[in-house]
Amino acid sequence: MSNAAHPTPVDRPRSKGGPAPALTHLGGATATRARELIALYPEPRSALIPLCHLAQEQEGWLSPEIMADIAALLDLTPAEVLGTASFYDMLHTEPVGSHLVSVCTNIACLLNGAMELLEHAESTLGVNAGGTTADGAVTLEEAECLAGCDGAPCVQVNHRYVGAQTAESFDQLIADLRSGARAAEIPTHGTLNRVARTTGLQADRDQIANERAAMAEAQAQRAAAAKDTAANKAGA
């Protein structure tokens, strides 16, 4: 959709037609889901962030090869994909452990011992915030507010709330993650949404356009009628 007042990079014609781009790293089923996601949006580029989440399901992070695949799917350059991905905390351009443990230290958690919990986590895991344990099981992150302030200090694992944590419960949590005891509830890093969209809009664009035109006409008629009534009242 072109809009002179607001030109976007998406407007530039890029594709020269021809066969669909060959994907080197996004697997068959993932590529199919990617094309389904793209079809949901009026502009393909809108699917960029959903595609990055989808791609992270494979390896937990966005490698240059995967970003090149996303770019091919969206008719963008890899730099445009990286440009967007690098802005967002949840999109990782470096490898991440299989469990991303996010400890919020923002105000409500700070007041409830979050700094002390983070220090405990750093010493017990042997990494600083931002680091990954040697076995690749855990990446520790100091997070901004996760909107779970009634369970402070708030901790998420792979973006799933695990409730307020003490030093003791945190150690148990890490042991459970390593043993796989909570695998059903907390999927491996990268899997954000396990519920797929099962349906789309059956109505075609023409039908919607017809509906809107009919409704607009009915609204105009009602407005005209209301005006007539008001004029009659004023006249009387």
Binding site: I49, H53, Y88
Partner: peptide, 16 residues
């Protein structure tokens, strides 16, 4: 009703 509408759930990616 003669009214058609599509709703898409879109995930953000961590940015205040």
């Amino acid at each position: 009703s003669g009214f058609s509408v599509d709703v898409v759930v879109h995930p953000g990616a961590g940015a205040y």
